[in-house]
């Protein structure tokens, strides 16, 4: 299985979180799952500015050439993407949200009706399963609510207070 871990920890001094993800990566690899870990705070990613270039000018490609293309490639090539973030002000970090917003190129502008509400066409035929890994259980219900609303459904939400073995099993058997 191919796994991508996006580390959305904005603070270098919160080493514990980074180390946890490194250990998790090693655990996946020890079980023969190819695992890539991207440290988001080391990239100088721009916020999405809603320019729609990825829909209307260069379909599927973001206007900003700041390394987002690598993330999009890895995202689409993965079987499972683990977006990891500390809970800050009861939500995912702005750093992780930035990457979230920058995923617009994987959608197509055309609208469609999904039962009782509008959604967008998907650009690709294959997408990874998504896991949100938070540093604590508190706040996860609000985050879960927000993402449950999204078109591709809620990601599985796990937290680093769970044992690493348990996380690993949950992810692999997802």
């Amino acid at each position: 299985m191919k796994i991508l871990i996006l580390n959305g920890n904005p603070k270098a001094e919160y080493e514990e979180f980074d180390l946890y993800l490194k250990d998790l990566q090693s655990l996946f690899e020890s079980k023969n799952h190819k695992t890539k870990l991207i440290m988001l705070r080391n990239l100088q990613l721009h916020d999405c500015i809603g320019c729609y270039a990825c829909w209307l000018k260069t379909p599927g490609i973001c206007f900003f050439d700041d390394g987002i293309d690598e993330i999009l490639k890895e995202y689409l090539a993965a079987d499972i993407v683990i977006s990891a973030s500390p809970v800050i002000m009861n939500f995912i970090s702005a750093l992780l949200k930035r990457v979230n917003d920058r995923m617009l190129p994987v959608m197509h502008p055309f609208l469609k009706l999904n039962e009782d509400r509008m959604g967008h066409f998907l650009r690709y035929s294959h997408y990874p399963k998504t896991v949100l890994l938070l540093d604590r259980p508190e706040g996860s219900n609000l985050i879960d609510m927000v993402y449950k609303n999204s078109q591709r459904g809620a990601p599985k939400i796990l937290n680093t207070k769970q044992s690493m073995e348990e996380i690993c099993n949950e992810v692999i058997n997802y």
Binding site: W55, L56, P59, I61, D69, K73, L76, H108, P109, L111
Partner: peptide, 28 residues
């Protein structure tokens, strides 16, 4: 109608064809 007169018109103005709008640069 929205897809046709709003979105399709907008990308065609930039020289992007209907098929081109569905480009998959990074995957399948």
């Amino acid at each position: 109608i929205i897809n046709k007169v709003y979105w399709e018109k907008a990308f065609k103005k930039n020289g992007v064809t209907y098929e081109g709008s569905f480009a998959k640069p990074y995957g399948k």
